[in-house]
Structure formats: structure tokens, C-alpha cells
Nucleic acid binder design. Structure first.
Lengths: 339, 339
DNA sequence: CTGAAAGCGCTTACAG
DNA sequence: CTGAAAGCGCTTACAG
């Protein structure tokens, strides 16, 4: 590889100063049009590559934004990421992605990396057990944070997520209105705000309808298709098993439906199933899944914008933004089967 | 936020030079044990954050590796990424991820960003139409590249991918051995090496068995669940429609099965379907999908290692590494139905 | 409109 | 084993 080309290479070749080259390349109005064009043409011709590390060291802005979620392989996060991506692209920010798999240590390592790289900000779905101090520490070191999907009590930052209690209440009420009285809640965990809220919404709806809730009807844990598939056995083995299942998310619901089908029953006919998120594949599942649209696009878009606002110095209040979910009724729910 | 803490802050406080601090923090044997401990303890105590931009500007190593694929939302790539991640984690490299969605411009922008950040290397599944010059340019500017999944003719870099022609031949031969004679190939495109190879493998198997291949039996294009779902209509509308479909990947196969089920037919009984990749969800699909294991883990692991080898100066030959696929037979394939 | 000079926070020869 | 000094490649006041 040839001699490294830098600003001064261009400056020397054209008989101007590096200051002029620097300004010209960034389209500063301080530089005469003709000078600017001459410089830009030459830079392109010799294949100049802008050194962002050097610039960033000087300006202490890196153009890097970090995004950390539980698992990008989860389509729920993937859909959020997609909209974050398109929002950040527009303002020419590079983003660095990481999974924390709900391990606090991995999350801390990543935040540390961002600090070392001088990242401009971070969008995070906090790992289970994230203490508010972790977020405070980042902010104090110049790394503003915005939260998605989950909240952290005591962290004074903006949070964007769906109204989870309202959402599961929608699903549960839909099942109740079809005539179901024994309804199970499958998946999720009390260790996250989302988990607590979704369970609460289900409880609220059941109680408001005067329906009994048996402890065994809750099968906590599953969050993946695989786990939903495996939960089918446990669900069907419940004494007087429920006629409907309100699932933690679409993945669990689709897995459960597969497990139910594998056991020789027909989901949507023998057992009604609701999902949560309305992933792209909910509509093409067999049967098509009744689910709660969770506003992934909206969450990603608003979170990215809030962060960009913070970066540009706009005051952003540390508020909870709850996106209103919507029920999308499809074929996986119906009247309870006569027995 | 308090006064910025840097090496010299520590040096001043402890009455040593910045050189000593720098060496101590990196565990250099040149520094006395007691001095090192004193320095490290103090650094931790006052919350020192290492500035990687400054270090990288000096050393011209950034500890950043870029990864660019068509779409990280695609579980096929997600599984590859997972193994790349665990391999890179181990050697403490940060990785930056990007989708190119098969747009050459997006891919170029990303490579440019990597060059500007002084990334140490890039692992890429090249976008359709990537000219070898793009890869050559990156390498000449100090960004070594390793290819996954697809190859680029004329690019002298290591490539890790499955033996695609062999893989679809496995699937096709399996269908033939069950007694199918009218077999369709659904999905993929001739614009990628993978697309050409997979179609060729299907053709080879059909011809070797002396079976006719009608042009209409190939439905090119679909690569997603949604597209596979939509292709079901076209497939079922074929005159004397085939009794089996060899699909581009698991997503198309699962989508197609859903579409077939929606049309009132039973996949695995009325129509046999094979996938490709053996994603985690292939095993829990309904019916469980017969598919070709494509070695995602292996591809990711080997590609990451090859890049790390390149970075450490080991000579890596620009060879094609073909991972041997394996057929996993499940319930989505069976004997053709009598008509 | 353009140039000379300082400085961002590290690491690396070079001395001692 | 430790320190003084130069330099990585930019940008930013400050002069003119």
C-alpha cells in the first residue's frame, strides 16, 4: 500500500494550508468555491481517506452510537433495530450493536467499549438487574442514554416502550369475550418490568371479569419459539387444562401452536392462542395469529430521534413514553370447544 | 461531569511519567510490580477511562472489526453472526455490524466508514454485483477482508461457505428416492454464486436420475417466509403441479408449507417440501422440516479465525473453503400421494 | 478568504 | 526500571 495520504498531502500538492483543506472538505462557507472544488477534486483523485479517529480526538464527537439489546436474533428487537438503523442512517451516525443476553457483565463491557471509543450516545434495552447507577455512570462520562422496551427504576432517562399491561388486557379480554373462562398465561418473567406489566394486565382483565385465576395456569419462563413448543406439553397436562393461552410474545405463541398441532390438536379450534408483538410472521403463521401490535417501528424511531435530540443539545425530558398497543384478530382464536 | 481524567492526571497524582502509566496499565514487564499495582489501583479508584481513539491514532490499530451481510434479521446470518461474535469476543475485538440489503451503495458506505475508523478488518457476505475492485481497494487501504456465504470472482481473499450444489443435490436425491418425479425448485436468484450453485445441484440430480425438468417448475425469487407463503399459490397453480418442492432455504420452505396448509393441503403428505440451512426453527416447524444443514456456526467460526490470523500477520491463503452440508430428514417429506 | 500554531490523549523509540 | 520528547492526523481559535 502506497504512502499514507493525509490532509497535509493534499495541502502540499495544492499549495494551501491544512486548515483550508479541512474546511473545504467539510463544505465550510469560509472557503472560496473555486478553492473548495479544486481541493475536493484532488482529494477524490488521489483516494484520500478521512481519518475519523484523529478528527474525533480533536472534536470529541465520534459519530458513533451504541445499541445494546438482549438478543438481535429475536425478531422483536430486529424490527426495532431496523427502524433505529434507518433513523440513524439519515443523520450519518454509525452504529455499533451488541447483545447482552441479559448478562450484566456483557452489558458493562459494552458500555465501557463505547466510552473508550468516545461514542456519542447509547440506546439500550437494559439487561435484567441493571442498577440505575450503571446508567448514571454512562451519562456522567458523557454517554447519554435512551431506554427501549424495558425501564430501570430510578434512571432519569427517556424510555420508549409499549403499554404492556394494557396490551395483555386487550388479548385477555378478547379471549373472555369469545367465551373462554379458563385462560393460561405462558412465558415471561417477573424479573423485568415488561414481564410484571404483562402479567398484571392479564390478571386485571381476569379479575374484572370475575374469573378465577389458578396459580398453575401461569407458566413463566418461555420467551422463544423453542420454549413455547416445549411448554405445550406442560400446558396440555394441566388438570382441566385451559381452553386458551395468552402468550408472552409471538414466538412463544407460534411455538406453542406447533406443539399443540404436534399433539394432534388444532390451534385456533381446540385451543385459542394469542401472541404479542405482531411480528411479520404472525400473519403467515398457521393458523394466522391473533396478536397485539406492539409498535416496534414506533419505539425504534422515537428512541433514535430522542437520542439525536439529546446529541444536538435539545433538552429531552426523562419521561416514559408508552406506545398504545392494538389488538389484531386473526384465526388462532375462536369460541371454546364444547367438551 | 468532572474534569476529564487522562493518563497525565494519574501520572501527576502519583509523581510518575505518562509513559510509565501507559506501560503499567497495559501490564508491561518493563514496569516494577509495585509501581504497576499503585497505578492500576489509582486508575480504578478515580474512574479513569482509556481513550481508544488517541491510542489508535498513535498505533493505527483500532480493535474494530466490521461485519456486513445482506440482512441480520435473516436467521441464517444471525446464526453466523452469533459464532463470529463469540470468536471475536475472545480476542477482545469490537465489531460493527451493517446490513447492505444487496445495495452496492450501502456496502460501499459501510466500507468507507470502516476505513475512516481505521478498522482492523472486515468479514463480508458481498452484495449482489460486488466487483472485485471494491475488495481490492479495501485491502490496499489496510482493511483485510474475508468473505462468507458468497464468493466474488477475482477477489483474492479467503471465502467460507457451504458446498451449495452438493447440498441441493442431497435434497433433490432424497425426494427422488421417495418416488417423486415432478420436483419444483423455489426461490433464489441467478445473480449470486449461491443461487447458481444451488440450482445447478438440483439440475444435476434431476438429470442424473433421467427426470424431466420443466422451465415452469422453477420459481425464482423468494428468499423470505413471506415470499415463500406467496409462492404457494403459484406453485399449486402449475399444470400437473409437482408433488415436491426443493426450496431455496428454510424460510421459503416454512412459508410455502404455511401457504400449502392455508390452501387446505397437508405439507409432508400432499406435497413434500425440503428446506436449506437447518435453522433452529426447522425442527419445530409443523411438520418438522426436512432440510440441509449448512454449517452456519462453522462458517462464522472459521471466517473469524481466518481474519484474526490475518490481523496477527499469519499468512492466510485466499482459498475457497467449502463446508460439506448434511441432509436432515424429518416429517415434511414422504412418498408422493396417489392421485 | 487563507495560514501558522497549538493541542486532543495516547505510545514509542531513545536516554539514562 | 523510569522520564522527556516527538508524533499519530485532524480542527480550531487567532491573525492577517
Amino acid at each position: 500500500m502506497a504512502q499514507k495520504i493525509k490532509l497535509s498531502t493534499i495541502a502540499d500538492a495544492l499549495g494551501v494550508s491544512t486548515a483550508t483543506v479541512s474546511l473545504a472538505l467539510r463544505d465550510s462557507p469560509l472557503v472560496a468555491d473555486s478553492t473548495r472544488d479544486r481541493i475536493k477534486d484532488h482529494a477524490r483523485a488521489i483516494g484520500y481517506i478521512y481519518n475519523r479517529r484523529a478528527a474525533s480526538l480533536r472534536t470529541s464527537r465520534s459519530g458513533i452510537v451504541g445499541v445494546v439489546v438482549h438478543d438481535i436474533m429475536n425478531p422483536f428487537f430486529a424490527e426495532i433495530l431496523r427502524s433505529i438503523e434507518s433513523e440513524l442512517d439519515r443523520s450519518r451516525q454509525t452504529f455499533i450493536l451488541s447483545n447482552h443476553y441479559d448478562q450484566l457483565e456483557k452489558q458493562r463491557t459494552f458500555i465501557d467499549t463505547l466510552l473508550q471509543l468516545g461514542a456519542d450516545g447509547v440506546i439500550m434495552s437494559p439487561a435484567i438487574g441493571t442498577p440505575p447507577e450503571d446508567i448514571l455512570m454512562a451519562e456522567e462520562n458523557g454517554l447519554p442514554a435512551v431506554l427501549i422496551a424495558r425501564t430501570v427504576e430510578g434512571a432519569a432517562v427517556p424510555v420508549f416502550r409499549g403499554d404492556d399491561a394494557y396490551g395483555t388486557a386487550l388479548a385477555t379480554n378478547h379471549l373472555i369475550s369469545l367465551g373462554h373462562t379458563r385462560i393460561s398465561m405462558i412465558g415471561g418473567t417477573d424479573q423485568t418490568s415488561t414481564g410484571r406489566d404483562r402479567y398484571q394486565g392479564y390478571l386485571n382483565a381476569m379479575e374484572a371479569a370475575g374469573l378465577e385465576v389458578r396459580p398453575g395456569w401461569r407458566i413463566p419462563g418461555p420467551r422463544t419459539k423453542q420454549a413455547g413448543f416445549e411448554a405445550a406439553g406442560q400446558f396440555l397436562a394441566l388438570k382441566d387444562h385451559p381452553t386458551a393461552a395468552c402468550c408472552w410474545n409471538d414466538l412463544v405463541a407460534i411455538g406453542l401452536m406447533n406443539g399443540i398441532a404436534r399433539a394432534g390438536l388444532t390451534p385456533g379450534v381446540d385451543i385459542s392462542v394469542t401472541g404479542y408483538d405482531d411480528l411479520e410472521e404472525a400473519a403467515i403463521a398457521t393458523p394466522a395469529l391473533t396478536t397485539v401490535w406492539n409498535g416496534q417501528r414506533e419505539v425504534g424511531r422515537r428512541a433514535a430521534r430522542a437520542l439525536l435530540d439529546k446529541l444536538s443539545g435539545t433538552q429531552v425530558r426523562p419521561s416514559q413514553e408508552l406506545i398504545k398497543p392494538e389488538l389484531h384478530v386473526r384465526q388462532s382464536t375462536g369460541r371454546p370447544r364444547e367438551r
